[in-house]
Write a protein that binds this DNA or RNA. Structure first.
Lengths: 141, 141
DNA sequence: GCAATACCCGAGTTGTTTAGTCGGAATTAA
DNA sequence: TTAATTCCGACTAAACAACTCGGGTATTGC
């Protein structure tokens, strides 16, 4: 029951972008240094964030990334799902697998628990916005 | 954000044990057949369940496993933690890692979100008992 | 007693995933 | 032009997952 490093880094990076919201785009190099994350690894993560239109990019010198929406309209769940795909605690809950597991008795009994778990995880992650995440350090720069 | 097959099988197996609670101990071979799980793999899972005293074993011919407590006193969370260890969405939340991550700014900001996620996951899993899990099929044999 | 049945133990294997690395091409401000 | 940046695709070493395999030991029905 662990999140990938990609997700962890992605959320941290987005938190940085939220701090520097309004202002020049932030280059990945800067995030990499501040958060001690490999630049090349960050470069793999941001296409996912761009694809779902959470960020926009500015190419070239003095370019970088910025949030596409204000921090209070971006939820942690959006980031997690963008980077890692939909939350599926067990295979059985992935799409197209609706009844393939239910000829076994125990599988069907437990299925609803996993579905509920999935829903609650999404709830928790969707309950927190980037704004709330960084407000504790508001004004620190 | 996925559970391991060990956990999934473990919960399914425990559901079977709950169904056959009161009665002869259930041999792993039977669970393996009913749930289409490798017997050898089940044999790897059950020591974990025994260690935390969720089940007891009866050795010898006509032996097997049975629940150590009634189904209404066993929570899905107990099983998950027994088989997979404590829920830790990110490394930072593992024990002994309390401040090793907080010299990086984004890490500390996000930490509380992961902690909350961990707590909610535990809540959901601890909210369901084995009894509730199998009661939908009560009387089916 | 003895064969059958169950649990117990640890190593090995195979395939997938993770967490990156590496090199370079396209784009842009200065 | 040059330096900084995003973009793109391939590659890889290590870890992990999901088993398999081969036995060993204890217990019981008969």
């Amino acid at each position: 029951m662990r999140l990938s490093a990609k997700v962890e880094y992605g959320v941290r990076a987005m938190a940085i972008l939220a701090i520097y919201y309004q202002g020049d785009p932030v280059p990945l190099r800067q995030i990499a240094e501040q958060e001690q994350i490999s630049l090349k690894f960050l470069e793999q993560i941001f296409p996912d964030l761009k694809r779902v239109e959470l960020v926009t990019s500015v190419r070239g010198s003095r370019g970088g990334y910025r949030l596409m929406r204000p921090p209070e309209e971006i939820r942690v769940g959006d980031i997690v799902r963008a980077v890692e795909g939909p939350i599926t605690p067990v295979n059985c809950l992935a799409e197209g697998d609706d009844d393939s597991c239910c000829h076994r008795r125990g599988a069907c009994l437990t299925r609803q628990v996993w579905a509920r778990l999935r829903d609650k995880i999404n709830d928790v992650l969707d309950d927190v916005t980037l704004d709330e995440l960084v407000e504790v350090s508001a004004g620190k720069e």
